[in-house]
Simulated scan of single mutants.
Amino acid sequence: MADTNNKITEHDVVYAGGDKKIHYLAAGPVNGPLIIFVHGWPGTGITWKAQLDAFAGVGFRAVAPDMPGYGGSSTRRVIEDYSQEAIVEGMMALLADTGRDAAIWVGHDWGSGVTSSVAIQHPETVKALATIAVPYHTIELGWKGFLPLVDRDLYPADKYEFGQWDYMKHYEESFEKAVEWFESDVPGFCKAILQRASQPTGRFSTLSATVRANNGWMGIPKPPPVEATGPASLPPDVYDSFVADMQKTGFWAASAYYMNHERNAKYNGDGRKLTQPVLFIHAAWDLIVETKTSRLAEHMRQSVSNLTEATVEAGHFAQWEKPGEVNAALFRFIVEELPSEWPGFWNQGYTKRKALA
């Protein structure tokens, strides 16, 4: 945990007429500038611990929810609960529970889709947006947001119709089977997905582009056992908490995010042009959400008037593999683009003096 002044505390907010709940973690001074970290698939609030500690330590009010379907939040087996419209309702309830009307929003993976949806639907609540691995103006728009941007030199349409997103089609065609595979060995899968990435020698994602052809992930009947993989990229205490959460909830609700592309497209339409400061952090070694050499970031660049891009040499879970570099990119972005959101706003005698001639 953080030091005694920045201890991570647990909170719950009930919404949707009392039918749903979001559990979230918070650290740092209650009146500090608010920054909200939104995890993706899979994850829980505690997987942002490195960010909660770092940002609380310099005076931010740092918040990280268990997203619907995960941890201590609602995990109903209702597909529509995991549409962007339903998730954004939860995010507005979370924001209201902090006592604020706006925040800096940081998302990763599906969390990037969620924070992007917040920016589209409630731009007044977004002081700045930062997404990791998944660009704005992609996944939150349904299939149309990312499928047209597949690199057809790598994934010819006649052989790989859905490109590296073939695994998403597997969810739509065989949802229960997909979930059953993850749940056949939750600790084994969690440890496997938490392996540190290495620099790839190519850009083709055999893993994700051949899921349906292999009749499931990797063509094996269940995830590799925990003893078959190396150390996880999360610290041991965070990793143990994350795995325990996933064993408790399973993967049904978490995976239902992938079953709402049509609803999400209808909800978010063609997106919105953003004028707020936006930071995109490329995960350079990510083969599935490949943004460095593909066109995947193209629509974001056309839709954001104040865009900063940074690159971290890590796999998809960059904030777990290289938290220091991700935190540094976020800190620099805030200092340069939103100095008034820096804790204290340098109002305690900060003075720059020019050298004498």
Rank of each mutant, 00 (worst) to 15 (best):
K7H: 13
A16I: 01
G18A: 05
K21T: 05
K21L: 12
I22H: 09
G28Q: 13
N31H: 13
F37M: 10
G43C: 13
A50V: 00
V63M: 04
A64R: 02
D66W: 03
Y70V: 00
E80W: 01
I87C: 05
E89A: 14
G90M: 09
A93G: 08
D97Q: 06
T98V: 10
D101R: 15
D109R: 02
V114P: 00
P123Y: 07
L129Q: 05
T131Q: 05
V134D: 03
W143I: 03
K144I: 04
D153N: 09
Y155I: 11
A157T: 10
D158S: 14
E161S: 08
Y167R: 09
E172H: 10
E172G: 10
S174D: 12
W181L: 05
A192S: 15
Q195I: 10
Q195E: 11
A197G: 08
S198N: 14
P200R: 03
G202T: 08
G202Q: 10
S205D: 15
T210F: 08
N215P: 00
P221V: 07
P221E: 07
L234T: 00
F242W: 07
Q247G: 01
A253H: 01
A253V: 02
A256H: 00
M259H: 06
H261S: 15
H261K: 04
E262T: 12
L274P: 00
P277G: 02
I281C: 08
A284G: 01
R295W: 09
E298T: 06
S303L: 05
S303H: 15
L307A: 10
T308Q: 13
Q319H: 14
W320Y: 14
P323Q: 04
L338T: 07
P339C: 05
S340V: 11
P343E: 13
G349C: 05
Y350M: 10
